[in-house]
Design a protein around this nucleic acid. Sequence first.
DNA 1: TGTGAACATGAAAACATTTGAATATAATCA
DNA 2: TGATTATATTCAAATGTTTTCATGTTCACA
Lengths: 116, 116
Amino acid sequence: MNQVVHQFKADFFKMLSHPARLAILDHLRGGEKSVNELQTLLEADQSTISQQLAKLRSGNLVDTRKEGTTVYYSVHDPMIFQLMDVAKEIFNRHLISHQALLEQVAEASRLSEQPI
Amino acid sequence: MNQVVHQFKADFFKMLSHPARLAILDHLRGGEKSVNELQTLLEADQSTISQQLAKLRSGNLVDTRKEGTTVYYSVHDPMIFQLMDVAKEIFNRHLISHQALLEQVAEASRLSEQPI
DNA sequence: TGTGAACATGAAAACATTTGAATATAATCA
DNA sequence: TGATTATATTCAAATGTTTTCATGTTCACA
């Protein structure tokens, strides 16, 4: 396994190493979605989504279909979901301390509930 | 699937998004290896390997065992190999243009053959 | 043709990761 | 104890990524 191949693989995993990109892929499990729908689902602004989509495109993880002014995104290879599921499985088993995750989730909801 | 969970997952994939770390994990398929062995196998310098190992440790991807002054590393959960294999499969199918990969491999070997 | 809607791109600032050199620690052994 | 081997940590420079804001492009339709 040479260096160049490992670099390619690393780049592939890098595609999956951003929460917004993972969220997008998760939303595409149910089939294609427009940029607009993704924006709404992710509660992020247009430019941010569009740039993350550009990365997914450049990595060939997604396909696009244009209909009028609307662009629909879908995953190129559904096997990506299998990958995400294996990751989830590893994850659920023990990689992160569940404790740590639960604390962060709790922390996050505490923050979002707090008045300014 | 909330934001915090996606962040955790992204961090997990980030662990795999570096060629040296992938190479290390690949070498651990055959069982534990000492830092020294990994250094030799990867042809990288001590500090670099040690730092990448530190990352893998911090992500709980590897376990360590100390024997005298030697530290042996092994994967914490062999399911990580399953993940890497699924990635390889996706990879082999079509994600990157094989053409592009072949060209880079050719390029790399051309460079390394060239006299200075 | 002009306007608005949907999406993409560019550039700069903010932030994170990687690398390499130097230094630190820990165990062994003469 | 002092020297040596094996590994880890620290720090700063270089490099890469993300975010934000402004601007571009394309299409549809009045």
